[in-house]
């Protein structure tokens, strides 16, 4: 496909997704209800959020080559700062977003400045440690702000009326879709910018970038802040979609899940990461439904128990992918369709 066809196809897809809430067609067995039903729209909105989140992780891991184990921290910061501003400080959604944006810029700037003084696996460990500190902080419920293990639920008046209630699910769906499109645009623009090319050069050979006379530290910090900022914004949208904040999103396991999403889709390709995030979230959600299906319940225990654990299926799928399909979904598509080799990918 040449560039024009691809852009046209992409635009058609976006238009299709925009009008989705008016299309009542069911797509069994992919979705249990019609596409316009609130349940389907809510699932799609969650998929979009995780697609955007996976893209933000791919910027730092796939393009700048920095293996961070603390990405959950920035997503959780977006979720919790918004939730706290809405529930405890009684801000409007716009004010809460303003506060979150400030935090989402300062937090990764400070932590990134510290973590990037070490590299490789030590970088992974320090980021993991900071994320763990964030997780402990949330669980300790300081000043009763985070709700500890219980998390925070938004009251009925915390969000604008247009975002509350089952009937308004389509508004939330459009917000999530708009956020995904915007994040994709920022992602494509950033990795193709001059700085984005330096990130990829650092991934390949950091010393050489330094010899050329550029300061890798500043470029890495830029990638870290951008990626973390986008993750925090994904957290804000997630908060609006879910209507509550749960400490699950702060855990190290959540970062590992993000890693699974990006690797599932294909490290170092933006569309692959988005696809990975969407497919993972979809499977995670649908496999729970599948687990309760009557056909599965009648199986013997040694088959039923593993099959009713989504994380087990996804974990095994992930291991198989890492072993046999190194490029993830994006790599598999590229191998099946060698003609697109020259034009596909984001480099």
């Amino acid at each position: 496909m040449n560039r024009a066809t691809r852009i046209a196809a992409l635009a058609a897809l976006v238009v299709l997704l925009i009008v989705m809430p008016w299309i009542g067609v069911p797509i069994p067995p992919l979705f249990s209800e019609a596409m316009s039903a609130p349940g389907s729209l809510n699932l799609l909105a969650l998929c979009f959020v995780f697609g955007a989140l996976a893209l933000s992780y791919d910027i730092i891991f796939g393009f700048a080559g920095l293996l961070s184990f603390g990405h959950a921290l920035y997503f959780a910061a977006g979720v919790y700062v918004t939730a706290i501003a809405l529930t405890h400080w009684h801000c409007t959604l716009l004010q809460a977003m303003g506060i979150t944006i400030v935090v989402a810029l300062i937090l990764p700037l400070v932590i990134g400045a510290v973590c990037l003084r070490v590299r490789d696996i030590q970088f992974a460990m320090v980021t993991l440690a900071f994320a763990q500190a964030g997780s402990i902080l949330v669980m300790q419920n300081p000043f009763g702000l985070t709700g500890g293990e219980e998390g925070l639920a938004l009251g009925p008046s915390a969000l604008p009326a247009a975002l509350v209630g089952v009937a308004n699910t389509r508004n939330i769906y459009w917000i999530a879709l708009a956020f995904l499109v915007l994040t994709c645009a920022i992602g494509v623009w950033s990795v193709n910018s001059a700085a984005g090319r330096v990130w990829q050069a650092i991934r390949e050979n950091e010393r050489r970038v330094a010899v050329i006379g550029l300061n890798p530290y500043l470029y890495k910090l830029g990638a870290f802040v951008l990626s973390s900022f986008l993750a925090s914004m994904a957290g804000v949208v997630y908060m609006v979609v879910e209507g509550s904040a749960s400490p699950d999103v702060t855990t190290a396991s959540f970062t590992l899940v993000l890693l699974v999403m990006v690797v599932l889709g294909g490290v170092g390709t933006l569309w692959g990461a988005v696809l990975g995030g969407i497919v993972y979230e979809y499977l995670d959600f649908r496999l729970v439904v599948l687990a309760n299906a009557s056909g599965l319940q009648s199986l013997p225990a040694f088959l039923r128990v593993p099959l009713s654990e989504p994380l087990f299926i996804l974990g095994v799928l992930f291991i198989i992918l890492v072993l046999f399909v190194p490029g993830g979904l994006a790599g598999a598509v590229r191998r099946l369709n060698p003609a697109s080799l020259s034009s596909s990918g984001s480099h």
Partner: peptide, 18 residues
């Protein structure tokens, strides 16, 4: 590293399921 991550997620999920 990724394979060990997959094992970690899958094994703990299996134990929880069983």
């Amino acid at each position: 590293i990724l394979v060990t991550v997959g094992v970690a997620l899958a094994a703990v999920a299996l134990i929880e399921g069983a």
